[in-house]
Design a protein around this nucleic acid. Structure first.
Lengths: 205, 205
DNA sequence: CAAATTTAGTGAACATTGTTCAAAATATCA
DNA sequence: TGATATTTTGAACAATGTTCACTAAATTTG
């Protein structure tokens, strides 16, 4: 079907156009400043059109959050070749933190904002694939470390969550602007130092 | 001045009435659902009146955030009698986490929301007293631990920040509903286990 | 005490948001 | 070409934060 096929492609293209406009806008102006109207204006369509392709704003934010996870996974995948699990774990942390610092709006959307989770809740299978896949990847690496004798006396699941929490906490405090005010230090520098400090803590047997 | 005095008191009372209504409303309905109109309705005054006592919504949220810090500080102060610094550090962490779990909206306001920080930014002395006092208290205890031989090879400032980040990360992931979806586990239980796991990690010399 | 002045409070109105939907424009097909 | 189906539009709605001309009350003054 030549026509139907082309139409489907065009629909996909407009959908992608909306998503890209949204992504650009909120990397530029921030998520809060990115309105449906501003997206519509950017692509030179009307507000109504956006709602033909997306149920609501939550869906748009959810799709962008998924894109964020794809990007993060891609960056993490380059570390699979590191055979020493502890080295890989450290590298994962570093990559995670760099991602957060270089894509603050995206990170915020993925791990702090309510919108994408609201969308997940509305789905029949209320499964947060993106989150559980990411956590699985972390846990697998932690498991390998444990098999090599690291983390004696710890349990896999809580330990993995603790590691995630620690790095997330740093990134989150940074993105939500609590670091400078509380510590009086240059945030980027402190985050870097604290991360190294954390690695030191991890590596103790 | 009898009259001026009474007036000042009445002003203070209405101010407090507004703040209390706001606090009740958002512990009950959540911060996002607490509008200026709902506050005005609650105290049976008009919207305009609220704006006679507060510059804007950010100011209301900032004052409540300060109240939150007072409450947290109060709970922490009960631990000053613990003389062993490492025991005190652990207890501080436990208290911090309990506070977050029992006052989720308040915690979110204090450490995640943008509004109170926007207000701080607008002040001439852009100092986040609440945050720096809290961090100082933590750092002092960490310092005492180091003096007792804990945390060899670590530096005070980054280590203190790491500890804060870790506990904050757990609380934040919980409050922003990322825990269940990513780990597939009961969030409260995991938070509890992970915190114990973290203490284990801290205590290694 | 009555008038003038100051202070406190009101709520309609505005701008901005997400969202909807009847109508218009465009594309497809017979 | 004309009928039908699809796509797009943008005015309109509800909810929100915010403002401000007005009213009401309290206080001061002569």
């Amino acid at each position: 079907m030549g026509v139907a096929e082309r139409k489907a492609k065009e629909k996909e293209e407009l959908r992608a156009l909306i998503l890209n406009a949204a992504k650009d806008l909120f990397a530029e102006k921030g998520i809060d400043q990115t309105t449906i109207r501003s997206i519509a204006k950017e692509i030179e369509y009307s507000v109504g059109t956006v709602y033909l392709y997306f149920k609501d704003k939550n869906q748009i934010l959810h799709e962008l959050h998924s894109e964020g996870f794809l990007k993060l996974a891609k960056e993490m995948r380059t570390l699979f070749h590191v055979s020493d699990p502890m080295e890989r774990l450290k590298a994962l942390g570093r990559t995670y933190m760099s991602f957060a610092l270089e894509n603050t709006q995206m990170y915020d959307l993925m791990f702090n904002m309510r919108a994408p989770m609201e969308f997940v809740k509305e789905q029949e299978e209320q499964n947060w694939h993106e989150g559980s896949n990411a956590f699985d990847a972390l846990r697998n690496t932690v498991k390998e470390c444990m098999d090599q004798g690291y983390f004696k006396g710890h349990s896999l699941q809580p330990l993995s969550f603790t590691i995630w929490s620690c790095v997330h906490g740093m990134c989150s405090l940074y993105i939500r602007e609590r670091v400078k005010g509380a510590t009086g230090q240059d945030p980027e520098k402190l985050l870097y130092d604290a991360f190294e400090d954390f690695l030191l803590m991890l590596v103790k047997r």
